[in-house]
């Protein structure tokens, strides 16, 4: 699905391309011959009922799982056939993960959690990690442990951690699923800012309001793409 960035008038290259991707677990088809392209800089929302294949899609795109068949190209690299450690390397360099349950390391402070992502990626830089926390409004909470932070604050630390290595793609799995309305709005505002800067976002959500924030929304059911909507941003 080649596209044009109408505002900038530049050709949009595809960051992600899936061709007839299937994933089966035993006899169960989690994804069934799914084809999809995501241009750089796009905000894609993925919706669908439980068991529709959203998480499987996220795992394959996030290099946490492999497709049973089909072709997956992420940032110019075909993932099929790569060794586990190569997939880890691509995930480390290319993808920023945001989880519904935040998944912060409980005995590390907010800034240390962010620095952990730097540690596995490249050079640890505390000043930069603090700047990332400042961006999500948590500079003053940098020395707090996750247990001392609210759910919304923990999710913002998770976002700062996902952003710290400047990934080509942000993958967010139900990022507002555990947040109240106020914190949901804070997180969406951060996403809007990232999108405005050209970051590619794929957000899995059950929430129609959140889904509607994206440029494009696709719905999955039984592993198939059943609906696609462009919100015109």
């Amino acid at each position: 699905m080649p596209a044009e960035d109408e505002e900038k008038g530049e050709p949009m290259t595809d960051l992600l391309e899936l061709q007839n991707v299937s994933k089966t677990y035993g006899g169960l088809h989690a994804l069934a011959s799914l084809s999809l392209t995501v241009p750089r800089g796009q905000w894609l929302s993925v919706v669908g009922p439980s068991g529709s294949g959203k998480t499987t899609l996220m795992n394959i795109v996030g290099c946490l799982d492999r497709a049973s068949s089909g072709r997956v190209v992420l940032d110019g690299v075909e993932l099929g056939g790569l060794r586990s450690r190569d997939l880890t390397e691509i995930r480390r360099n290319t993808v920023g993960l945001i989880f519904q349950k935040f998944h912060l390391i409980p005995h590390l402070t907010a800034v240390e959690n962010v620095m952990t992502a730097q540690y596995y990626h490249s050079m640890v830089d505390e000043a930069e990690a603090l700047a990332a926390l400042e961006r999500v409004g948590l500079r003053q909470r940098a020395a707090h442990l996750p247990s001392q932070l609210s759910g919304g604050e923990q999710q913002r630390v998770c976002i700062a951690r996902a952003l710290i290595n400047y990934p080509a793609l942000i993958l967010a799995d139900e990022p507002t699923g555990n947040l109240d309305a106020d914190n949901e709005e804070i997180v969406l505002e951060i996403f809007r800012g990232l999108h405005a800067e050209g970051t590619t976002l794929i957000v899995v959500t059950h929430d129609p309001t959140v889904a509607a924030q994206g440029q494009r929304e696709i719905a999955l059911d039984h592993g198939r793409l059943v609906k696609e909507v462009f919100h015109g941003r």
Binding site: D5, K8, E10, M12, T13, L15, P39, R40, G41, D75, G76, V77, E78, L82, D86, E89, I90, N93, T94, G96, H121, S122, M123, N165, Y166, P167, A168, L169, I170, E197, G198, T199, T200
Partner: peptide, 20 residues
Amino acid sequence: GKASGRAGGSFNNKSIETAA
């Protein structure tokens, strides 16, 4: 040495080996 993830960043036309 960290790369930008924004549109038009430095990821185009890179080899599998380099990315991996």
